[in-house]
């Protein structure tokens, strides 16, 4: 890394070599001649550039002052307008403080520092001499360890090195419990009342008028030890439509109640809440990836990336007129997993 050209204006960096000019290739004409700038020729332009740089640094100082004005003179009073004003002041203060310095320095470099382009030679990334030296050193090192001559040491070391990192992997075993059958059950059970989300108040069948959509959680969910985890599986969308629009398959005729049906809200694609209910088309739309489910075909997928229909929660009515689940979901809710089967 010796022999640098040190940016002297005389060095033009002409690099065309004799013998390169032929009829096949143009000869490199070398660096174009340097054109002096305004500030190089005219002392007044130089003075002007100097003033401009100083003004830019002054702008920076004013910006910093503006920051402090915003910080100390705009007391936060819980209104959004004040906060917005403070954010604007702090931000513009910082912006001016930074841009003043930055633009000032660059303007200085562009107008007042030398602008002669300089050429520097590249060097071989690896010289042959270095390579030979390095090879010899490494060979000597390997030779001195004697590892080639002592296979017993080599093999036992290899074995030890392979085994030694294993504890570092297995020590992470307690990051979480094994899945078990956690994904196959939800908080729903036979007789669990359907309750409004988030208030937890139970819902009567007569509350659910045609065209309505209720966001439902199981009653008593708030007493659950793992509230959010249970809620993440148990949320249900409850809708009522004309019983004639529903076409229940054999065995599922009594899963609804007079046109009231309950379906899991967790998308069978990757688990977003499928909560968009179109009450005239009876379509359910997932806002994340647009899977569309048709309520009149037991939530069969009619568009988008999901494959399986949303699981239906079998419901009925208890003697007080409240909607209840008659069992848990008959299949795991939410996205597919390897063991789902």
């Amino acid at each position: 890394m010796a022999d640098h050209s040190h940016g002297s204006p005389e060095s033009t960096g002409v690099v065309a070599r004799p013998g390169q000019g032929d009829v096949q290739k143009f000869q490199n004409p070398g660096l174009p001649p340097h054109r002096p700038r305004l500030a190089d020729r005219d002392p007044r332009a130089e003075k002007r550039a100097e003033r401009q740089v100083a003004i830019l640094f002054l702008v920076s100082i004013i910006g910093t002052v503006l920051f402090f004005v915003g910080y100390f003179l705009i007391p936060l009073d819980e209104t959004i307008a004040t906060l917005r004003l403070q954010n604007l002041t702090l931000g513009l203060g910082t912006a001016f403080a930074m841009l003043g310095i930055g633009v000032g320095i660059v303007h200085w470099a562009k107008t007042l520092m030398p602008d002669h382009e300089v050429s520097e030679d590249r060097h071989e990334i690896r010289t042959e001499a270095d390579r030979a030296d390095a090879e010899k050193i490494i060979n000597d090192i390997v030779e001195e360890t004697g590892i080639k001559r002592r296979p017993l040491i080599r093999n036992t070391l290899l074995g030890a090195m392979i085994l030694a990192p294993l504890p570092a992997v297995f020590i992470f075993r307690d990051l979480g419990p094994l899945p078990g059958d956690a994904l196959r059950h939800t908080y729903w059970d036979s007789g669990t009342r359907l309750a409004r989300d988030p208030s937890g108040t139970p819902i009567r069948a007569s509350d659910v008028t045609i065209g309505s959509a209720f966001h439902v959680i199981p009653e008593g969910l708030s007493d659950s030890e793992h509230y959010l985890e249970e809620k993440a599986k148990a949320v249900v969308l409850l809708m009522r439509l004309n019983p004639e629009s529903l076409n229940p398959s054999p065995g599922r005729e009594d899963w609804g109640y007079e046109g009231i049906v309950a379906y899991s809200k967790i998308c069978t694609h990757v688990g977003c809440p499928v909560a968009l209910y179109e009450q005239q088309t009876h379509h359910l739309l997932c806002p994340c990836h647009q899977s569309t489910f048709d309520l009149t075909q037991e939530c069969k997928v009619i568009f988008g990336p999901a494959v399986r229909p949303l699981p239906q929660l079998p419901i009925s009515v208890d003697d007080e007129g409240y909607l209840i689940a008659t069992s848990d979901f008959q299949q795991p809710v939410g996205p597919s997993f390897w063991e789902r089967g």
Binding site: S206, I210, G211, S212, Q280
Partner: peptide
Amino acid sequence: TGPQNMPVFNDAN
């Protein structure tokens, strides 16, 4: 009233 495709949110809901 649940206009068009919007579900109805009655007073019980």
